[in-house]
Design a protein around this nucleic acid. Sequence first.
RNA 1: GCCCCCAUCGUCUAGUGGCCUAGGACACCACCCUUUCAAGGUGGCGGCACGGGUUCGAAUCCCGUUGGGGGUGCCA
Length: 462
Amino acid sequence: MTDRPRFRFAPSPTGFFHVGGARTALFNWALARQHGGTFVLRIEDTDEARNRPEWTDGIIDALAWIGITADDPQFEGPLFQSDYADAHLAAARRLFEEGRAYYCDMTPDEISARAEAEDVTGYAGWSRDRGLGPAPGSVLRFRTPDEGATIVRDVVRGAVEFDNATLEDFVLVRGNGTPVFNLANVVDDQAMGITHVVRAEEHLPNTPKQQLLWEALGHEPPVWAHVPVLVNEQRKKLSKRRDKVSLEQFRDEGYLADAMVNYLMTLGWSPGDDEIQPWSMVERAFRLEDVHHAPAFFDLKKLAAFNGEYIRKLSVDELVTACEPWLPTEWDRGRFAAIAPHVQPRLVTLADAPGIVDFLFLDEPEIDEASWDKVMNVDWARPLLADAIAAYEACDWTADDLKTTLEGVMASYELKLGKAQAPVRVAVSGRTVGPPLFESLEVLGRDESLRRMRVALARLGG
RNA sequence: GCCCCCAUCGUCUAGUGGCCUAGGACACCACCCUUUCAAGGUGGCGGCACGGGUUCGAAUCCCGUUGGGGGUGCCA
């Protein structure tokens, strides 16, 4: 690798940050870090994006969330494609003057008509020798070589050969005078001193054209690397329409950045037998050469498993802090902290937290009728509840004591603790499932717990 | 149609000619633990797409087939 490699990440703003883009960014970031290089953020802005600066801010925020922070010395940007418009046109002019490109005044309709008539696919260089000059409505086309092959040396795929005869004379500048993606892209990369282009595989077919442009413009092509795309369960490229692809959405649903980053890095690459690895390790171990070649399924279930694991690794303090955005403002923070150790192993996402312990904060528990019917429709439910209330009135109100006391009560019913705790649980929480009962009671407090139990008893006709 | 890429358990992957009776992770199943639900522990199920070569030996190399995907814009 060159001394100070420069990697570029070139998203086009769309109002959300694609998880596939996040992975590509991470790959570039790891490389830049381990080689002391630079991560260049180039915004490939369009007219629409130019009018929406918040889209660019969104990209920067999303990158920051996954640890790629704009104030890091190895981060450069954002740079905007639109700022290089003059350079794009200057390059086009130069290509024309040097005979590497030519003007064509055929309309798309004329082209398809002639292609059909001559039974060829696409544009067959019909204006190559017409000596046309620039004119309104005319496009500038690149004169691709007729013979030989363009060989793209790709770090992950090896040498990929494209027969030049199959490369048509592609458009460089549109009829309205604006440069096309391939031209702008190459000119920008050159202007920004990019040495490594690491991007998704969908760009591979564009690469021979871009490589030809690099050479025509007098530069050595960069190091290319095309990483596999992310696909859905139907093995199709992840699409915004039908797949959950927005990084912001995962963030807002309570996925941890560390979990997301770790999971994303296992798509197309593996850190070894232990997949749960901190970024500090991943950053050192990642190798483009080791990237897998086949598309990878973005598996929400595995992401969820990673997230749960990362949540369980948090200290209780960290967990409480992390949950903050999802907690109703009126909830007592001390009370949440007290029960937090017991919600921790039950979380898939941080957003799940409130739903698990809401009964500790509500004035009245929300009684799930199905749970009530299931648990209370036994003849021993009412007497056991009555006995429990009586025994609890004289109890120390610690989780241990609450458990021992209930065990004393249930002895006369010949019940196991699993059964005996059910009516109490439903009386207090309204549900059959939830955090450990006695710890919950301790946190809820004597008065409120007993009150709820009495309400339940009354409903049972006691 | 044409061009390009790809192919190991359901999924993500390890594997670079003998360490492979193919390893790990997620999911799934069973059991253990247990205060419900989780978490945790143990075990299990499950794969080299197919056909030809090359080689003493192939998941690994070559060819073909089949199957997926991507690209084929005056989109990016």
